[in-house]
Design a protein around this nucleic acid. Sequence first.
RNA 1: GCCCCUGUAGCUCAAUUGGAGAGAGCGACGGACUUCUAAUCCGUAGGUUGCAGGUUCGAUUCCUGCCGGGGGCGCCA
Length: 579
Amino acid sequence: MPDPATVVVERVAELVARLYPAATDGLDLAVRPSEHADAQVNVAMGLAKRVGRKPRDVAEDLVAQLHLAGVCSAVEVAGPGFLNLTYENDYLAELLHAAANDPHLGVHQATTTETVLIDYSAPNVAKEMHVGHLRSTVIGDALVRMSEAVGHRVIRENHVGDWGTPFGMLIEHLIDLGEVDAARELSVGDLDGFYKQARQKFEASPPFQERARARVVLLQGGDTDTIRLWRLLVAESSRYFDTVYRKLGVRLTSDDLQGESAYNDALPTVVERLRRANLLETSNGAEVVFPPGFTNRDNAPLPLIIRKQDGGYNYATTDLACVIDRVERLGATLMLYVVGMPQAQHLSMIETVATAAGWLKPPFRMVHVSFGNVLGSDRKMLKSRVGDAVKLVELLDEAVSRADASIAEKSPELPTADRANVARMIGIGAVKYADLSNDRVKDYVFDWDRMLSFDGNTAPYLQYAHARICSIFRRWGRSRVEVRGVMPTIAHQKERALALWLLQYDSAVWDALERHSPHRLCTYLYELSTRYTAFYEHCPVLKAETDELRESRLALCDLSARILEHGLQLLGIESPEQM
RNA sequence: GCCCCUGUAGCUCAAUUGGAGAGAGCGACGGACUUCUAAUCCGUAGGUUGCAGGUUCGAUUCCUGCCGGGGGCGCCA
């Protein structure tokens, strides 16, 4: 409702349906932002083709009969047949006032509430979290927040790697260290060292290998003491993951853990149900499904392996059990898999098989929210000096200390106690925003200087715009809530540009959500900041000529700040009031 | 060999699913601080959107074929 375009779309749709009832389906009725006017409608061109008339003539007809009194002050035909709209200033003011008094700041709520399950982060138990987990965690978190913001029911799932052959070696290593010492080492977060030591022993010592293999058998057999040790590994790792998630500022907690092991009991059922669905075949002693459309190197059908020759299950089986669980137990209509690009084929096969088996059918659907890599300045996968993966905690700590140094230099008057907190918001925000603001399907180059810059499409720039608004209200000295009753007057060109953009927040949030692309929201917020700053430069607020004008501009400031803060919050980024 | 992703200003990235002279930031050049936070703003220069065709009123976007980069292709997850 707060987007003036929605009214126009309705009116245009009515008119077109009345004038050309036979040519309406699939027509592009969208009202888009325009460089040549406040908005544009492109329906005349598409219509002209269907009814065999000149686009400009169709456009003229539409303009003549379109009733937009009180909404648009002008509707003109331009170019090949564009309808250029200019909105009525009073109408914009009404919508701004409505948005300012809406708890969702104008973002309309979902008409059908879905249960959205978001599968993201997915670190491995007893292994360090590194840059490779950054994108999944940060993008997934943003999708969680955006989905909740429009009223969906959201289920977070952290599909951690907590099962498989490496656990034989990890448990034996834990026994060697002694439970107490091992737990201590794991809880301080030296998962990297723990895993590497275990691996090293495994590779160097044949007796250790034997023990590890035997331990896997015990683990799979449910041996109580082995299970107890395994739980210790999982619990300590989970505790560590929680510290990383808190530092990153994402919603995930240990309550969201849904490890691979959770599906162990369901695996035989998966096999049974596939067999009953007549999908199961035997190939080289393994039980497999051949989903149509997938081939291997030799152009032969490519199987999804359900049960290996040795009788063990594969990750495909777990993933299928997972789909069943999510659909049948949790009732998740939309499942988002925030998983890297390399898994595209695997997930596509899972989807095909789950559909063929009848487990996945409308309204239930799964979407692979894939993403590219984080690159170093050499355009290769980001690595540390010594060549291994960069630890996530170290990356975050460096971001905070860099931000802190920058604040110390630029705002020495800020008390040190506040500075630490602001540095955290800026540093963490910069890392997350750098990740989220890039189109997720592409790789991006990690660059400290650029992401921490106060110029350009960065978190600090948006945060700075927000902080400046807060500063105005501090000087004003009265409560911000007071201006929410004000009906703003739109007069200055910069006020108008800002107002139009503020009213786009609704569509920006939905656009980002529907494409599962947080970077679209980033682009919106960046544009909002630049428009706000232009307004700030040209339109004095506290020094405005009249009280009315001051209040009107304060109202614009208030809504701008709230949308900035709200939008950043949807991305999981905090907005300091001073910086 | 087959399949998927990708290629846009010197650099880093956008472009509202096919819309009007392809937009930002950085860097370069030229301007604006007795300030509501100059950590900012304004202006100028910079392009055959990898190449070649095709589809149509209109293509960075869709189709075909090449070229370059990344990834995947039966018992790891």
